[in-house]
Nucleic acid binder design. Structure first.
Lengths: 192, 192
DNA sequence: ACAAACAAACAGGGTTGTCTGTTTTTATGT
DNA sequence: ACATAAAAACAGACAACCCTGTTTGTTTGT
């Protein structure tokens, strides 16, 4: 594997495990089994590394979703919810993406880079979802549906970090509950 | 105001503005207009300061909710949703609480302190909500309703940091949408 | 006088960015 | 095919910086 890729993966792992606060380039180099010199050669600064790692993650999501969109089948709203949950929020590096976006909030330099990538990914995602639903990405109802799903699933994905619940599979039940709501509340298909 | 309180407030402000990553005790002392010596006298370590600030915030929430629970009126589910949104997720220091809890994920010492406070607050909150609904905090349906609301509103609260949307008041619309769903999907009141 | 609160200086650890030197790959001319 | 020059990639050392925790001394209140 290329050095850059190894470093991006290691950076995401580190971000997942230790969080932005304790994230250190030294640690990343070690995880990637690469010298610190190699890292500094590839990435001129810590922020550059983080931006590259984020870009790597978003690109991998884009590829994954590109495959999904090949299915010619038209999906029901609840199937889109399922897709989002299984292919985004259960991604092993979801927490990393969260840490990075939260950090980008305060750092202008980092924020600029991250935002550009996020805009690209968002557009890609929304276009694919609209395609799967058989609607347009600029359709108001579609946008609202997508926004709502992103919010709800994000909140559920974070639940383990915010809840004192210890019982198993709380997330699964919450997702099921939300899917039930989606099934009964959201409809896009034209009448037969 | 007492030094401890000034420091806790300043710590929450700092956590809000710069995030856990750039959070520094020096900065907190400056914001509180207090010498660093005073800070170290009150809090033996950085983690102790963070824990105290978190405790201060949770206690303030408990006081605020204590006032609300005095109203003898029984609330509809959607009114509880409204209450949660306006009294928790729109709290000026909500992001601070989020940063702290995310940081507590990796730091054992910090995590132990934060978790204890969170358990206390969660129990307090759930008990009050059940009281307002006229149900029991151990009631399964009630717990599910509360959990779901916390997740959804959390996701909505975070939306500005994760969305490329620039249009105004997206959050407001999402909350309205969720309230509509709550109104039609959740019922606790016994039939008349 | 005693203890708590405060003020400020200090040293130490850890992390980043830079710098210098070495190895490997690529390009080029014969 | 071979030699050689140039560029890219890598390795490691270094200094500078920031932040924390500690320590020592001063003020204030009881």
């Amino acid at each position: 594997m290329e050095t850059r890729e190894k470093l991006c993966r290691a950076a995401l792992d580190a971000m997942n495990e230790v969080g932005y606060g304790r994230f250190a380039t030294e640690d990343v180099a070690e995880r990637a089994k690469v010298s610190r010199g190699a890292l500094t050669h590839q990435f001129s600064s810590r922020n550059q590394l983080i931006i590259a790692a984020y870009d790597y993650l978003m690109t991998s999501w884009e590829h994954g979703w590109g495959q999904i969109a090949r299915y010619p089948k038209r999906l029901e709203p609840v199937e889109v919810t399922d897709l989002l949950w299984n292919n985004l929020y259960r991604s092993p590096h979801y927490v990393a993406s969260l840490e990075i976006m939260l950090a980008a909030r305060n750092d202008d330099e980092l924020g600029k880079g991250i935002r550009a990538i996020m805009v690209r990914w968002s557009a890609h995602r929304d276009r694919l979802i609209a395609q799967l639903l058989g609607t347009s990405a600029s359709d108001k109802k579609t946008r609202q549906f997508v926004q709502m799903n992103l919010c709800v699933l994000r909140g559920i994905a974070l639940n383990p970090n915010f809840s004192s619940e210890t019982s198993s599979n709380v997330q699964g039940k919450l997702v099921e509950e939300w899917k039930r709501i989606v099934t009964s509340d959201f409809h896009f298909t034209t009448k037969p």
